[in-house]
Amino acid sequence: METIKQQTEQLRVEAHVQRKKVSEVSKDLIEYCEKNKGGDALISGPPDNHNPFQEKKSCAML
């Protein structure tokens, strides 16, 4: 009884969630990725061309 009460209450809450279309959120996601592409070291390379993990280990030791 308690469980079903909780479940129904939960569903009532979820029924009132405001929703956006997939196309809208996709657009936002694409814009976000494009806007931040320059700062993404694994896509555009590190900003100052220096990624401490991409140096050779021998260099790090020198």
């Binding site: 990725c33 494009e34 993404d40 694994l42």
Partner: peptide
């Protein structure tokens, strides 16, 4: 799949 994460821009 035991681990997921994004690159800084979210593209990867």
């Amino acid at each position: 799949v035991n681990g997921v994460d994004f690159s800084a821009s979210g593209r990867i």
